[in-house]
Nucleic acid binder design. Structure first.
Lengths: 114, 114
DNA sequence: CAAATATACCTAAGAAAATTATGTATTGTG
DNA sequence: CACAATACATAATTTTCTTAGGTATATTTG
């Protein structure tokens, strides 16, 4: 598990990147997918996740659809077309950011980085 | 300039990495070095920098030495031996974190990453 | 089969970290 | 000589997350 301060500010980027790939996910599913993909090193807390999802919806970046599964409800989130460009910008920005950080932290540059 | 939310949480790591290389720097010098090394893409604000430097000093990670240059004072920060191991941990953690983020964001893995 | 765990949503109080806005003072520059 | 740059600092506000709580159903396990 990474120190929380490091993960700060990446939550929106993570959510939008996943939804660009997956088309449609619900909150709990996002927490599990992140946990699995990162080997438990990043675990989203619900207190951070849900308010962020609501904010992204309010901004028109995500839309929702509530589905009943058995007797339990799931709120599926889908990324809108304008949301997709926001997602792309965020991922590109993060990519550039880590290239910049490599310079600052004296990490070896990797193949493919301009 | 990157969106500020992205840079959040990396300030301590940046400061400690620079001081591991440089041995001795003062606050304003840190802001300029970061600005130069990143082509202006990361610009530390004084309101964030100074309180963080003070905190690192209070934790015994940095020590200070005030020097008069002309009539103006400079407060030089030096990293302590125990601070160096903290710095190393932070840089390693960041390095692992971006490897994890590459997976999440579907970025291409780079040469040298296990 | 009861208890614990997992699934699934949510919010609110507080903490942490940054931004924004100041303030002080000296030095270099057009 | 005014303005920008150098050099420190703090305080109010904002943003973002953590912690802690609340509700409810489904599944696993002793």
């Amino acid at each position: 598990m990474y120190s929380s301060e490091l993960i700060k500010g990446t939550l929106k980027t993570i959510i939008l990147a996943l939804l660009t790939d997956e088309k449609k996910m619900y909150g709990y599913e996002i927490t599990q997918k992140v946990k699995n993909l990162t080997g438990g090193k990043i675990q989203l807390t619900e207190g951070a996740l849900y308010p962020t999802l609501h904010a992204l919806e309010a901004q028109g970046i995500l839309t929702t659809e509530v589905v009943n599964v058995g007797n339990r409800l799931r709120k599926y989130y889908t990324i809108t077309p304008s949301g997709k460009s926001v997602a792309q910008e965020k991922v590109t920005e993060f990519s550039e950011f880590i290239a910049t950080m490599r310079i600052l932290l004296d990490l070896q540059p990797r193949a493919g980085e301009a």
